[in-house]
């Protein structure tokens, strides 16, 4: 085991983990507000990555960072429309029906994405700005810096907004109890729409950063599947939990790639789920999830 590589693995893991955290935040917000497990979160990444691509190539030809900024409101609108057209009619129905519907959403969005953007291999036009920083054997690439800065920055900003802004307080109120929120005059349906929009925007940001070098494509969905172990580990309904679990699993995956994958092929894909299983044995509601007492 070469420990001289450890700092590099930590940096790489933090960068990837920050993106996991970013995407998981949107997933957790949706779960808190609507109790819906969005199985289509990988497709949200895909659509987001493709939206950025749309603004990045002809006829728009916007530089990648600008394309990201322009795509965010469109991604927000996409999430809001999904909530309006697909999720809201199902609220209050049997939980299995809602789960099946979001699984149906996966197939629908896969098909729509292929129909709209085609199946061919695409690449972003240009790169994320920035030069790699080399400190001895430690390399901090522009992609890593973007991952860490955007991932952690946006996550902290979101936590602050949820805690201190008027809309954030209203979203938290709806998350706690929709009925109580409605009684207090909060427009709960509007808040839920905003949460879905926010989730799609965060997924777009995560999707494009994950795909910035490999190009947008269906492989992004596989990367998005990491949301599930991160959310479960963090506690499903915990916003800080999503951030901490994202960073932790990112680092664990990087260390696994560095030190274990050679002797145990496939371990990197499995290890997040193994950790989740072990943690759930000790803490059934995840590391930061609220334990709930249900009377039956």
């Amino acid at each position: 085991m070469d420990l001289s590589l450890l700092p590099q693995f930590l940096i790489t893991g933090l960068s990837t983990g920050a993106l996991y955290a970013l995407i998981t935040l949107g997933f957790v917000l949706v779960y808190r507000a609507t109790s819906v497990v969005n199985f289509a979160i990988g497709e949200f990444l895909l659509v987001g990555a493709y939206l950025v691509y749309t603004f990045n190539v002809a006829p728009f030809n916007l530089p990648l960072p600008l394309a990201m900024l322009v795509a965010l409101p469109v991604a927000f609108l996409f999430g809001w429309l999904i909530e309006r057209g697909f999720v809201r009619p199902l609220l209050g129905r049997n939980v299995v029906a809602v789960i099946m519907a979001t699984i149906g959403l996966v197939a629908t969005l896969d098909g729509v994405a292929q129909l709209v953007w085609g199946a061919d291999q695409k690449a972003y036009n240009g790169e994320l700005p920035g030069q790699p920083i080399v400190l001895g054997s430690l390399v901090l690439t522009a992609r890593s810096m973007w991952g860490i800065v955007v991932g952690i920055g946006v996550a902290l900003l979101l936590i602050a907004l949820l805690r201190y802004s008027r809309y954030g307080v209203m979203i938290r109120a709806v998350s706690e109890s929709e009925t109580a929120a409605l009684a207090l005059g909060i427009n709960a349906p509007r808040m839920v729409g905003i949460v879905w929009g926010l989730s799609a925007a965060l997924a777009a940001l995560g999707g494009v950063l994950l795909a910035s070098a490999s190009g947008p494509g269906f492989h992004v969905i596989a990367l998005g599947l990491m949301v599930f172990p991160v959310a479960i580990l963090g506690g499903m309904d915990s916003v800080p939990g999503a951030v901490i679990a994202g960073l932790a699993l990112g680092v664990v995956q990087a260390l696994s790639t560095g030190y274990l994958e050679g002797s145990l092929p496939g371990i990197t894909e499995a290890i997040p789920f193994v950790i989740v299983l072990l943690v759930l044995l000790l803490r059934p509601y995840g590391l930061f999830g609220q334990s709930r007492i249900e009377r039956v």
């Binding site: 590589l5 940096i11 993106l19 890593s144 492989h219 790639t257 994958e261 496939g266």
Partner: peptide, 10 residues
């Protein structure tokens, strides 16, 4: 490695 990876720096 897996078929898709988020980062290849390490």
């Amino acid at each position: 490695t897996p078929l898709a990876v988020p980062d290849a720096t390490a």
